[in-house]
Design a protein around this nucleic acid. Structure first.
Lengths: 340, 340
DNA sequence: TTGTAAGCGTTATCAC
DNA sequence: GTGATAACGCTTACAA
């Protein structure tokens, strides 16, 4: 059996309340007794039982982080940022992936973490009523990452993707002289894809450029399907003098590779850009023009917001917006401007 | 306040012990009362308090996973495998990165997770006495991932990297007719690097091939430093007709890119291979020959071992070995064999 | 089959 | 400044 507060009390010849005081508010106890208790604690290697503590304080110092899945650079970075900040603030992080095709129970249990988390950050990338209802009934503080729930009070951290996506399309139109841009998105239910697509439509409209029926594809954010799509389409795209705007770096990488596979040069014959600025964007040949999304900051900010609410439950719901930013590298062909 | 067992008892007109029985061993209670209790539970949305439960049962159903850091494809996959299996087995996963340059406390607190985890899987990639001592004093069951602690009883899951690395070097020597192979490793204290290097030395020795003083580099597993090294060395390597064996895919990707940057063709002028078979290996041009390491299985197996020990504390310590496997793609130039 | 009551290890509220 | 003692919500003998 582990050493309990009682063992310490006996050893130091004091009552358990004194030991508890030393642990929590050391200054209100006599210096001598404190010294005695402290050395007893050290000798016995006493560490308070979290369960007993949690039972009293209703607090576990554990935060939950629920992600759509655990695949790829994007989520890793979110986790990394969250973990780091959580540790700084004295919390532990519990990770869960809200498995797709959720039966509700899965998400709920993931979110509430069997009830031992003090708060939870949830990333909801799919927009649907089901998720909304589940989250609306969660009883602990939660912050929504990269999304918003109508009619439910909660903190959220969102990315101003609109800005980044618009910058990108503007860049393509203005600096790369694109006349036609093909958009390759994730699932059409995906929140990010919708935002990025909206920005694309918007800028295209303002620039009086047409979006043809063949100009929008919905994939799933993965490399392989994008690669396959590319294999089928790149030659046509080159003929039509089109650019490709993929909704994440992985898909952009797939398309770049497909182009190269077909003997097409990027960016001189086909320009391809991505989104997120994961490390993949720096590993493609040519280096990828993309939109930087502050992934680890998202995680860190979510944790911060959560902790702040835990300290101060009554504060008004806040929505924190993080900026995205155009990163011009080589795959968009814009360097020609300077080279010429 | 959340609904407690007492609320349910009142609503169902039974005592709290009956409710408890329904929750845990439903069969020993009368069908009618059980039905009544169950509907009360459902109506009230009752969920047992984990702290109270943990206090009694000394069990939280939370497992810890401590990784050297949270960067890159490799660790993501480990997390993914662990998370999935943990959920299947009814556990939650708590993630921590054992920050480098550990002061001991950090690792210890990461490992014991403030005492609320039932067991923990630790990946120790650096071999040092300090880590050894800390882990030796952990009081909860733990399994070591990809390593072993001498003189301490514990389960472990290891990769037979030796086999994969040997296959790779043999492949390079036999099928790619390599006469000189440059090894690019991680830090020289890194466990994996040592294993892979040992296999390299071994096979080179057996093949009567020399390893020159300039043939071994210690980097840090990251893309950028490898890229920079490549920029400096590739031309020399081509002149010397050397192959490059990098200790992970990321570094291999960096070197491939550096070669291309220098106008050198891979694999016809320079052959480069990696290790791990992360998704990066499928994103390089040309596709990378590498050694597949079952990353998600590592995570899953660690969780499994942990759970088994939790069920059966007295069972003998087991060491589970997972196989690594050579994956021949294009960057090694071996396809020439079939093409010719 | 069900209820009563004694813990589990803490913290908080009182006396002293 | 310190020590009893009552919670906290649950499980589990033991009694009925």
């Amino acid at each position: 059996m582990a050493v309990s507060i009682e063992d310490v009390a006996k050893k130091a010849n004091v009552s358990i309340s004194t030991v508890s005081r030393v642990m929590n508010r050391r200054n209100i106890v006599n210096v001598d007794t404190r010294k005695r208790v402290e050395s007893a604690i050290r000798e016995l290697g006493y560490r308070p039982n979290v369960f007993a503590r949690g039972l009293m304080l209703q607090k576990s110092c554990v935060l939950g982080l629920v992600l759509p899945n655990l695949h790829g650079e994007f989520y890793t970075e979110v986790i990394r940022g969250a973990d780091f900040r959580a540790r700084e603030l004295g919390y532990q992080l519990m990770i869960s992936s809200a498995v797709k095709n959720d039966d509700g129970n899965t998400l709920l249990s993931a979110v509430s973490g069997h009830g031992l988390v003090d708060g939870v950050a949830v990333m909801v990338s799919e927009v649907n009523a089901h998720t909304h209802d589940i989250l609306a009934n969660v009883s602990i503080p939660f912050v929504v990452l990269d999304g918003h729930l109508d009619g439910v009070k909660h903190d959220s951290v969102v990315i101003d993707q609109r800005y980044g996506a618009e910058s990108m399309v503007c860049h393509l139109v203005d600096n790369c002289h694109a006349k036609r841009i093909v958009f390759v998105g994730g699932l059409d239910t995906n929140f990010d894809t919708r935002e990025r697509l909206a920005a694309y439509r918007d800028v295209m409209g303002k620039a009086k450029l047409k979006i043809g029926p063949e100009d929008i594809y919905y994939l799933d954010y993965q490399y392989e399907p994008a690669y396959k799509l590319g294999l089928k389409r790149v030659e046509q795209w080159v003929q039509d003098d089109a650019c490709v705007f993929a909704a994440n770096d992985e898909m952009a990488a797939g398309i770049i590779d497909a182009a190269i596979e077909r003997g097409i040069s990027v960016p001189s014959e086909l320009r391809v850009v991505g989104f997120d600025d994961t490390r993949i964007a720096q590993m493609t040949r040519p280096r990828m023009t993309t939109v930087h999304v502050p992934m680890s900051s998202m995680g860190a900010s979510a944790v911060e917001l959560l902790c702040r609410r835990l300290d101060e439950p009554k504060r008004p719901a806040t929505r924190l917006t993080l900026q995205s930013e155009l990163i011009v590298r080589v795959s968009c062909g814009a360097v020609d401007r300077f080279g010429s």
